[in-house]
């Protein structure tokens, strides 16, 4: 797939007061993919995002949005970007509609029809004429996305999009982001420190620590290579533990009337077959997807995640 990248980050370095906040970070994001930006607090996620959208200057290197340098052609680059940096802050004393009118005036070719279209898209039709101060966080988040999509951008940047949302809201947001990438072909950059969230949402994940990009990995690649904790609901337990003794890297554990064992993805059916062969009743097999967290911890050297 030799697609032209939507966003290219080239050897970007940011120095603030003599301190290197971002150190030669390099990566590209392609149309139609959701790119997760992972890292502990203070790793430089927000700084990198602020540099992509031109809120912060770049000390060295360059960022290209659809081939336009954010440094030299801000207007041309920003035409392709829709962003929410940190919280979806809107003018609270204005109605949701006037907020959208405000941002429509700042962009080219956004007419009334497009505004209504976007309102429909994010499902705010019933409350759009209410003042933003009466909105819940989820509604503000949606208004923020409406604002970001108004000018039909090719790149959507969402900093901590699920922050402060309830589980239903998180699920909705996730669904929404996947949809934008798959159906509309947008390149989406999402930052988060919620690992499980990222795994469900992203195609690729880049891990940033202390201003350095530790690696970019495919999410699925990550999952199949790594081991995961698998729990077997079987009967009898002791016998099953003996059967599974030789599998996995560690000894099987018996907990809450279940056998918990660390296996790779390919080993799971093999283990089940083995149990079945020994005439052990299997009531359930559950894989706990902790792999990403493990990878993350491995990459960041087991230091604090949050």
């Amino acid at each position: 797939m030799q697609k032209q990248p939507a966003v290219e980050i080239k050897q970007v370095t940011k120095v603030i007061r003599g301190r290197k906040i971002i150190d030669r970070v390099n990566f590209s994001i392609y149309p139609g993919e959701v790119f997760g930006f992972l890292g502990p607090n203070g790793a430089g996620k927000t700084t990198t995002i602020r540099m992509i959208v031109g809120l912060m200057g770049i000390t060295d290197g360059d960022i290209l949005i659809k081939g336009n340098s954010i440094k030299t052609s801000h207007g041309a680059a920003m035409k392709h970007i829709g962003a929410i940096v940190e919280n979806p802050e809107m003018y609270k004393y204005l109605s949701g509609y006037l907020n959208l009118v405000h941002f429509a005036r700042m962009s080219d070719g956004v007419d009334k029809k497009r505004i209504d279209e976007v309102i429909e898209l994010v499902g705010l039709k019933n409350r759009i004429n209410d003042k933003v101060k009466t909105y819940s966080l989820g509604m503000r988040q949606r208004l923020g996305i409406a604002q970001a999509l108004l000018h039909r951008p090719d790149v959507l940047i969402l900093d901590e999009p699920t922050n402060g949302l309830d589980p239903a809201g998180i699920r909705e947001m996730r669904h929404y982001i996947r949809n934008l990438a798959e159906k509309e072909g947008l390149a989406v950059i999402v930052s988060s420190h919620l690992l499980s969230e990222m795994e469900l949402m992203c195609d690729r994940i880049g891990v940033l620590q202390q201003g350095k990009m530790l690696g970019v990995q495919q999410v699925h690649e990550m999952s199949s290579e790594q081991t995961q904790m698998v729990s077997f609901q079987v009967e009898p337990l002791e016998q099953a533990a003996i059967v599974l003794r030789d599998m996995g890297s560690k000894k099987p554990e018996i907990k809450d009337k279940q056998i918990i064992i660390e296996l790779t993805r390919d080993e799971i059916p093999a283990a089940a077959a083995k149990l079945a062969k020994e005439a052990i009743s299997i009531y359930g097999i559950q894989a706990e997807t902790k792999t990403l967290e493990d990878t993350f911890l491995e990459l960041t050297g087991g230091k604090e995640i949050v």
Partner: peptide
């Protein structure tokens, strides 16, 4: 209010 981030991430 943080709205500066929206104001400066548009084409103008």
């Amino acid at each position: 209010t943080g709205t500066i981030k929206l104001l400066l991430t548009k084409t103008p």
